[in-house]
């Protein structure tokens, strides 16, 4: 699913578009704990959308370390300019939806996005 389709599905806006904007995304992970996000298993061939309510710099750093191309901020939260700037520097597309995390996940799942592998 392309980023613009994802935006339409969850009524999201693009806060930062520099990066892999035309990537096709099939899997997602949702969490407010970056510790848990660091535990996911990423594969090069399966770019991931991170869905989170965290808006500080750690979300961009986590995405950067994991090569996550796009992050969706939920609950319409205000995103600090420094977070947007760091996302731009690291070419991570930043999206924002007014929906709560549950609704964002539900809509995307219904549209065919799958959950990422998780093994603890």
């Amino acid at each position: 699913m392309k980023i613009n389709e994802i935006c339409k599905t969850v009524d999201a806006e693009i806060l930062q578009s520099k990066g892999r904007l035309h990537i096709d995304i099939h899997t997602a992970f949702a969490a407010d704990l970056m510790s848990d996000t660091l535990f996911i298993i990423m594969r090069d061939e399966d770019p991931l959308l991170l869905i989170t309510g965290v808006t500080n710099l750690s979300v961009v750093r986590t995405a950067s370390i994991l090569d996550i191309p796009a992050v969706m901020i939920v609950r319409g939260k205000n995103v600090p300019p420094e977070t947007i700037q760091l996302a731009e520097q690291n070419e991570i597309v930043l999206l924002r939806s007014k929906h709560i995390m549950f609704v964002v996940c539900g809509l995307l799942y219904k549209a065919g996005i799958q959950g990422v592998s998780w093994e603890m």
Binding site: M34, D44, R61, T62, I65, D67
Partner: peptide, 30 residues
């Protein structure tokens, strides 16, 4: 938190072309 790990990963991109390896290493340093 994570700022040093990002620097390490970026520095090592010149040494290791494998994204999978850099990701594993980056997570550990983070």
């Amino acid at each position: 938190v994570g700022s040093k790990a990002m620097k390490v990963k970026k520095f090592l991109q010149d040494y290791f072309p494998s994204q999978d390896y850099l990701r594993r290493l980056g997570v550990c340093v983070f």
